[in-house]
């Protein structure tokens, strides 16, 4: 048995697992599973993106494209060509990773705004292909008839069943990411994020690692995308336009850059917020924007680190 984790992380992860297993018992209706599932899918994308942005310091506004490629490739292979899902998902994920590599090699030579523009451009190109390549993708009206996930004789055809699957996948990827940060590669990525010149002077091949983490984050997005396709069984290009890229980057920033737990919080909060804001009806977009602004003004380092700081300050005052 491989020892997956060091002991220090166990406490948090056991809490996490218990919460994931308990929540279904207390949920009043199946509608909430839909939201929780979307949270998990977003959290998987955010997880990879947080490694890229928060640790290696590289911003991408193109991850909706990787999410979309994962969804469309697995969707097309199963719906149009009758591939079994246990083959279509790995092929979708690997193909997306290769696209990530091909995009990453030239674009990651760029820095700052230029990298943002290049990845944004890539996202727009993929969006156009998804809309225009009618024969393959179903065009603007989308791709229907994607089969549900099926393992042995169990078909994952309900929100409740998908909940366990997607949160398990998130849990595994979360552990792998925590491990990665706490390793030689993780230190190299953090070094690059803080000071690439110093990093290269210590013998770290900066460009190679930047491309590496870009590919890993694309891979995570593709995993989420392919799961999404077999969950909703119908996909259309609009889901994967660059607004989604902005949304996931916002989740990283609002949650708190550079901490995986904060990213999870960001994904949860920003996925739920629009649902909660249903109560203010037509003002929901306005309030959504105001909430985002308030978070960034009052907690510039992100919601979770900000609240933690406030809490510590309070504790300090009590002791005095």
């Amino acid at each position: 048995m491989i020892k997956l984790l060091s002991s220090s992380k166990w406490k948090q992860l056991i809490l996490f697992t218990v919460a994931v297993l308990l929540i279904p018992q207390i949920l009043p209706s199946d509608y909430y599973f839909l939201i929780l599932n979307i949270i998990a899918l977003n959290a998987i994308v955010v997880l990879g993106l947080n490694l890229l942005i928060g640790f290696a310091g590289q911003i991408s506004l193109g991850h909706a494209a990787f999410y979309g490629l994962g969804a469309y490739i697995s969707g097309i292979l199963t719906a149009s060509y009758g591939w079994p899902i246990f083959l279509s998902i790995p092929v979708a994920v690997l193909t997306t990773a290769i696209v990530g590599l091909l995009v990453g090699i030239p674009t990651l030579k760029l820095e700052g705004h230029y990298l943002v523009m290049a990845t944004l451009g890539f996202n727009i190109i993929v969006s156009i292909i998804l809309v225009q390549w009618d024969a393959m993708t179903g065009g603007p009206s989308g791709l229907a008839g994607i089969p549900y996930l099926k393992a042995f004789s169990i078909s994952i055809d309900s929100d409740r069943k998908f909940y366990y699957l997607v949160w398990a996948v998130l849990g595994v990827l979360f552990c792998l990411s925590l491990n990665l940060i706490d390793s030689r590669v993780g230190r190299a990525l953090r070094a690059i994020g803080e000071d690439p010149i110093s990093a290269s002077a210590l013998g770290i091949p900066v460009e190679r690692y930047k491309v590496g983490i870009f590919v890993v984050s694309a891979l995570y997005a593709a995993v989420a995308g392919s799961l999404y396709a077999h969950y909703v069984t119908f996909i259309s290009p609009k889901t994967f336009d660059f607004f989604y890229s902005i949304e996931v980057v916002t989740m990283v920033v609002v949650g708190g850059i550079g901490s995986l737990w904060s990213g999870l919080a960001g994904a949860a909060i920003l996925t739920m917020l629009p649902e909660i804001l249903e109560i203010v009806k037509e003002y929901n977009v306005l309030v959504y924007g105001a909430v985002l602004m308030a978070v960034l003004v009052f907690f510039p380092e992100g919601l979770l680190p900000g609240i933690k700081k406030l809490w510590q300050k309070r504790q300090g005052q009590v002791h005095e």
Partner: peptide
């Protein structure tokens, strides 16, 4: 971090420990 060149572990080793 300064010892980067005196070790070998790569991505998968880092992820799976």
């Amino acid at each position: 971090t300064g010892m980067h060149t005196s070790a070998n572990s790569g991505w998968l080793a880092g992820m799976f420990h």
